[in-house]
């Protein structure tokens, strides 16, 4: 991907050339094309905005919901959690038709907010299920102790449960954001104007014209779009795998 982004077209299309090295001098032509001839920057911005809003909505709803389901409703919480998770398994290809009616009814067609509305329906169930696993691993006695020590239940939740399950919450953030950047069906069906596209749809639509593939620009677009997520993943990798609660209880 990296090499293809900077290869001249002639280099790229000559079958005899070694694909793993620059046979001709590298070029910034594709990057320039991407930033001047398409609305790639705008798409990136749309994606980032939708991603951020979706992440916030997901956290606001999934964290308290998962906590309530793990702690307060006893045996039914677990079943309800599974039921919620099952809704996640319904594929978007089935749902986009009824959802497009909903979007149209709300007057959100062609707006990025249609996606802000729809994406949480996929991120929240999965996040609830994921967070329930994290919250379950937090011993109840920790919250009891925090409440005896002077916090309200909500305080104990904010100051104990959330900091301890920070790796779970980060996982949710990254999962939701990744989903927003890569989702295709909804982004394709709900939004047509070029300026409002998400990066995952705008790039293939506008860089594949008929049967002409702008391979260099496509690769460059993918590279740029995936870099931030790659960096974030690597930054928090240790958080994902760290046994964070070890030692609190025996």
């Amino acid at each position: 991907m990296l090499i293809a982004s900077f290869k001249q077209n002639i280099d790229l299309y000559t079958v005899e050339n070694n694909p793993f090295k620059f046979n001709l001098p590298p070029t910034l032509e594709h990057i320039r094309f991407l930033f001047t001839q398409t609305r790639f920057v705008r798409w990136l911005g749309n994606t980032a905005l939708v991603g951020a809003i979706v992440v916030v909505i997901t956290l606001l709803l999934a964290v308290p919901a998962a906590y309530a389901l793990t702690r307060l409703t006893g045996r039914w919480g677990q079943r309800l959690g599974i039921a919620i998770f099952l809704t996640y398994l319904i594929p978007p290809t089935l749902l986009f038709i009824p959802l497009s009616r909903v979007v149209a009814l709300l007057g959100l067609q062609d707006s990025i907010y249609s996606l802000v509305l729809v994406y949480p329906s996929m991120t929240i169930p999965f996040s609830i299920w994921l967070l329930m696993g994290f919250f379950k691993s937090i011993p109840r006695e920790l919250e009891d102790a925090a409440m005896v020590d002077g916090l309200t239940r909500f305080g104990a939740f904010l100051k104990m449960v959330v900091p301890i399950s920070v790796s779970g919450i980060l996982t949710v953030v990254i999962f939701s954001f990744t989903l927003v950047t890569q989702e295709f069906v909804y982004a394709l069906t709900f939004i047509s104007p070029e300026a409002n596209q998400m990066v995952g749809v705008g790039v293939p639509i506008f860089l594949v014209r008929g049967d002409v593939y702008y391979w260099g620009a496509l690769m460059a677009a993918c590279l740029i779009a995936s870099l931030p997520i790659g960096i974030v993943y690597n930054l928090f990798l240790d958080r994902f795998i760290s046994g964070f609660t070890v030692g609190s209880v025996k």
Partner: peptide
């Protein structure tokens, strides 16, 4: 009264130390 208003202190079986 909630636990915090009862002026009690409790030590739990698992100690429940705050791990972070």
């Amino acid at each position: 009264l909630s636990p915090r208003e009862r002026r009690i202190a409790m030590v739990f079986q698992s100690y429940a130390l705050y791990p972070h």
